[in-house]
Write a protein that binds this DNA or RNA. Structure first.
Lengths: 232, 232
DNA sequence: CAGTGGTCTAGACCACTGG
DNA sequence: CAGTGGTCTAGACCACTGG
């Protein structure tokens, strides 16, 4: 049984998707929702609050709650494949597989995947090269439960993320972007000096079943940037 | 007068920052907080919920709430205001206006705004501080044609991006994210050493009329990161 | 089992917006 | 002014975790 506020959210989202409520339209007030769904105002309010947090609505005190026209933006890290990106630039793409093995997750790693400590997980470390120059070190952990054949693929032929999304369609992703200094071992792999800033992207991907994978992507700051375009 | 839940958040964040509570430590339970701060459990709960949403804590039903080792993340999914982000953490927001003037655009600057070289444009340089610590240097160029009153606003009261979107609703934005080393002058402003990596976001915003503004945002890599969530 | 977080109620007072 | 969202209370019952 889903919580009441989730049911109310679904109801409102359906109205947005079906076009019954359009961008700029006024949503029912907290009191109206409370009466309509026979819940307390606090519960109705929670439904609206979450929709606001998720970018579907906007609120102004004294005025009301309105459907926002802000489409959830996908471009920032539209999980695009590094190989395509390189090939699209007309360059040569190569992958160097440094590791493809079963490891025992330490505390942090198990947290990332939502597993118990000491669980066995799959780990791959792959360098992606553009014209023989390292562009990305991909260090990835995968939950074996959902992707048992993960280690038996040829990652010179396809990428890990392409394989993963073929066996377990993505439903969600979290990501984080930071500028960091890296340890010497990683600097060696990327063929840069440890003083050079790196762009690190950490990404956790979910399918309907749960957390599929946690990837840490390291890029030399002078060779890689993230670009994006937003429409409102 | 700040809301009680914000006060409780600040209190807890202070304990994290001062090292009294470290990553992995158990935070007071909702009931303990309620008693300690003499508020209802719902109010104490809200403080914890927001800290969880902002990535400072993690909760497990039946177990408790624990300090996470994450730095604050700001979302790339929305052009969010830096001041709101800071205030939402229960911290003090201050802006230091370094420059607000008319400048003659050089070749690069005129390109960014889609103007002719030597055109007069508005430029502001503003440091955004969290609890007196610099979090972002905002270096912004604005097309005077669309925002003639840009320089006559009080940017201690509102932010440039909030003012801009109030006078010219955004329709599009381009952005780029990079990890870079910065020049000494900027390092001084951000109060870091020039060897520290920085996260730079460059963003061009469009309204229906055309390019409104080009902003370069510099952040100390160790104080700032971008987070986001995608649904597919 | 006692303790935790998750949901929910039926009220209350307040700050703000528009007319 | 009536209506809106923003905060807050003092309860309640539930689902879950560990011992």
């Amino acid at each position: 049984m889903l919580p009441r506020y989730t049911q109310i959210k679904s109801e409102l989202l359906e109205q947005i998707e079906s076009g019954q409520m359009k961008a700029g339209d006024k949503a029912p007030s907290e009191n109206q929702l409370a009466e309509q769904f026979d819940v307390s105002r606090m519960t109705a309010r929670r439904a609206l609050t979450e929709l606001v947090d998720e970018g579907f609505m906007m609120r102004t005190q004294g005025l009301g709650t309105f459907v926002s026209d802000h489409r959830p933006m996908s471009s920032m890290l539209s999980i695009n494949s590094i190989d395509e990106e390189i090939i699209n630039r007309g360059h040569q793409y190569t992958a160097k597989i440094l590791m493809a093995d079963v490891v025992v997750a330490d505390e942090q790693q198990s947290n990332w995947l939502g597993l118990n400590e000491n669980a066995e997980v799959f780990r791959t470390r792959i360098v992606h090269l553009e014209n023989i120059v390292p562009l990305q070190l991909e260090d990835r952990l995968v939950n074996p439960k959902w992707v048992p054949e993960y280690l038996h693929q040829n990652y010179n032929e396809t990428t890990t993320s392409r394989y993963l999304s073929s066996v377990a369609p993505l439903t969600e992703a979290d990501h984080m972007v930071e500028a960091i200094l890296i340890e010497n071992a990683i600097a060696d792999i990327l063929d840069i000096s440890p003083e050079q800033p790196c762009l690190k992207i950490s990404r956790r991907t979910f399918s309907a079943k749960g957390i599929i994978s946690y990837a840490q992507l390291y890029h030399p700051g002078n060779r890689y940037r993230i670009g994006g375009h937003l429409d409102f």
